[in-house]
């Protein structure tokens, strides 16, 4: 297997991690919004920020993959 292939697998793993993380954030945010609809705006903002943080970690992985590819 070439280094590019391994990099692609790395990018895929990073995507899995981020997917799990963002899924958890999104699910919890939905639950929280359903429980407290009046806090809708604040929850959405926090969820977006947290998703961005989780995403950043995955994107680091993707960039490492890009550097190899």
């Amino acid at each position: 297997m070439t280094i590019t292939g391994i990099a692609a697998i790395g990018a895929g793993l990073a995507a899995i991690g981020a997917g799990l993380g963002i899924g958890k954030i999104g699910g919890s945010a939905m639950e929280a919004m359903a429980r407290q609809p009046e806090m809708h705006g604040k929850i959405q903002t926090s969820a977006l920020i947290l998703a961005a943080f989780v995403e950043a970690v995955a994107l680091f992985g993707v960039v490492v993959a890009l550097l190899q590819g």
Partner: peptide, 10 residues
């Protein structure tokens, strides 16, 4: 750096 990469990658 995460700001930079996030926007670029997205």
């Amino acid at each position: 750096i995460s700001l930079m990469i996030r926007l670029f990658a997205n």
